[in-house]
Design a protein around this nucleic acid. Structure first.
Lengths: 174, 174
DNA sequence: CCGTCATTTCTGCATCTCCTGAAATATCTG
DNA sequence: CAGATATTTCAGGAGATGCAGAAATGACGG
């Protein structure tokens, strides 16, 4: 697939952003390419376009599918897969947040909960135990909030986003 | 400073979490230690406790101060700095989010805006330009939302968090 | 202005991550 | 089942990151 300079720049920036957030740069670039691509691409095409080894693209695509950011499909009577990124930006954001929550945030909360429990048994000072507990509770509060919100219908979520700070007006006092 | 097994475990998990989110593991550990420490620690103490080179602790502390997660202070008539992490968990979360927005999210939006502009001039296909535009607008929407919310008083923010999905009830229809 | 103590910068090395190309495996066709 | 095509796995190497220790810089007291 031919890339115009602007498309190259887009992919580059997307890759940078990924790198800063702990995502492999190449994988982020593959995602960027699929994100702007008007039609599904096959792995070979991606490898050529981005100048990556075919094998890498394979691994990257697998990972992106694991995050549910990319879907594979195969045209009838074709032998190779073609790949497409989630189209809707809101769905994309949801998938990313949900993925990170599930794989990184939730397990950390669970681990810290166990640690806080362990602290009760060993010689950990009271003040430290209290800090751990507070940490845990706040993280849990954020997690609960996210899970609450994520269950709402998309339309309501969008509304809340667009209302932004104005929402505060409708909050019951006290 | 002596670490009980639970404290060690806490620091380890905090470090792991940091690593997954693109933060240097040692730096995350330094932060974890300061986070649970009941009183301010000096750099020497941190280095010993975590088994890091003194120089690395220095760099790490500088970075943590840059993120406004840690404050340095010096007792009157003392020659060495002591360090303390933000105490309130909500303040911590705010500092992290604000830091990332400022350094990583906002610059990316700006870069993508420039790219979208560039795309108008070069041979980028219409569909691709549209995708870029949509991407930009959604990212901007999230950013606007965050900036809106971040300006509200802490009490209101807490209220919104605790209300969670129930907030949807107060959203005006339409 | 010199000595002490603390901090920071810098250099080289160890480790880890990531990528490539080759080999192995899987899938489909005739 | 043999051949063709696509995908995945894997071992090795290149490059990036992170760390320790040495050297340089800075701050303060006398």
């Amino acid at each position: 697939m031919h890339l115009t300079p602007a498309m190259q720049a887009f992919i580059l920036h997307w890759g940078e952003m990924g790198a800063k957030w702990g995502v492999n740069r190449s994988i982020a670039q593959i995602h960027a390419l699929l994100h702007i691509a008007p039609e599904p691409l096959d792995a070979e095409d991606i490898a050529e376009t981005l100048g990556l080894a075919r094998s890498n693209v394979s691994t990257g695509l697998k990972e992106l599918q694991g995050w549910k950011l990319v879907k594979a499909s195969r045209a009838l009577g074709d032998r190779r897969d073609t790949f497409m990124a989630i189209q809707d930006m809101f769905d994309l954001a949801t998938a990313v947040v949900e993925g990170r929550r599930e794989r990184e945030f939730a397990p950390t909360i669970a681990a810290l909960r166990a640690v806080a429990e362990e602290a009760k048994a060993d010689a950990t000072p009271e003040t430290v135990k209290a800090r751990m507990q507070e940490t845990l509770e706040t993280m849990q509060m954020f997690d609960d909030w996210y899970r609450d919100i994520s269950r709402l219908p998309r339309g309501v979520q969008l509304m809340m986003l667009k209302l932004g700070a104005k929402l505060a007006r409708f909050i019951p006092k006290g």
